[in-house]
Amino acid sequence: MARDMANDAVPPPIDLWSSMRQATSARIGLGRSGDAMPLKAVLDFQLAHAKARDAVHAPLDFDALEEQLAPYETIRVASLAPDRPTYLRRPDLGRRLDKESAAKLDAVQHGYDIVFVLSDGLSSIGVQMHAAPMIRACMERLGDLKVAPIVIARQARVALSDDVGERLGARLAVSLIGERPGLSVAESLGVYLTYEPRVGRRDSERNCISNVHGLGGLSYDLAAEKLAWLARTALKLQLTGVKLKDDVAAIAPPEIAGEIG
C-alpha cells in the first residue's frame, strides 16, 4: 500500500487541490454531482449567503454599542429612511437626518475639531464588532483634538456624516460604517473622512480606508494610524478627497500611503 503510493507519479487528489487552495480562496475543485454542485458545496454557499444577508438586515443594537463605548458620551440619531427596505431602495434618504435627530443635534454644543459618526450602513454586524475598538484606537491617537460626542446613526449612509458634522460645527467628520458584505467577509468596517462636512459633499471629496476586520483585513491599530495621519494632514491642508489622496503617495510614510482611496 505504502509502496503503491510512493510509486504513483501523480500526487494524491486532496494534496493537489489543497496546495492550489493556498493560492486563492475561490471555490475551486468543488467536484460534481452529475452536472451540479455537490450538496456540501451548495449548503456551504447558502450558509455564507445567509450570513451576509443577516449582516445586512440585522438591526444595530444601540444599547450594546453604547455599553461598549462607555465612558464616551454618545448621541443617537436616525436618517430619513424609516425601515430597512426603504433604506435599501432610497440611498438619498439614508444621507439625511430625520427631523427629530436634526433638532437634537442643533440643540447641543457646537464647534469641534472632529466628530465620529457610527453608522449601520450595509453591515450592522461590522459596526457592532469593530466600531468600539476602532474608536478607542482612534482616541489614543487623536485625543488631543476637540472631539464631539460620538454619534450613532440608524439606517445611515456615509453622507449622513455631512449632515451631522455640519450641524455640530465640526471641522472633520469620520464615518465608521458597515461595508457591503461579501460571502467570505460579512463584517467589514469602512472609514470615510470628510473635511468641512456639509450636505451635498461629493464622494470625491472624501478619503476612505476600507476592509477593517479580523479575517485578514486591516487591524484597528493600522487603520487608526492611517486615519490619524490623514486627519492631521487634512486639518493642515484644509481639504480631503482626491487632492489629499494624490499627496499621500508623495508625503506619507509607506505603511500609510498604501490602500488609501
Binding site: 486563492t24 480562496s25 475561490a26 471555490r27 475551486i28 468543488l30 460534481r32 452536472d35 451540479a36 454542485m37 458545496a41 454557499f45 455564507a48 449567503h49 457591503r180 458584505p181 461579501g182 460571502l183 467570505s184
Partner: peptide, 22 residues
C-alpha cells in the same frame, strides 16, 4: 461564470462553472 458562483474580488454572486454544465 466564476468558481462556485462566488466572486471573491468583486464581492457579488454570479454563475458557477457547474451552471454552464447544467
Amino acid at each position: 461564470a466564476v468558481p462556485g458562483a462566488d466572486d471573491i474580488m468583486l464581492n457579488y454572486q454570479s454563475l458557477s462553472f457547474h451552471d454552464m454544465l447544467y
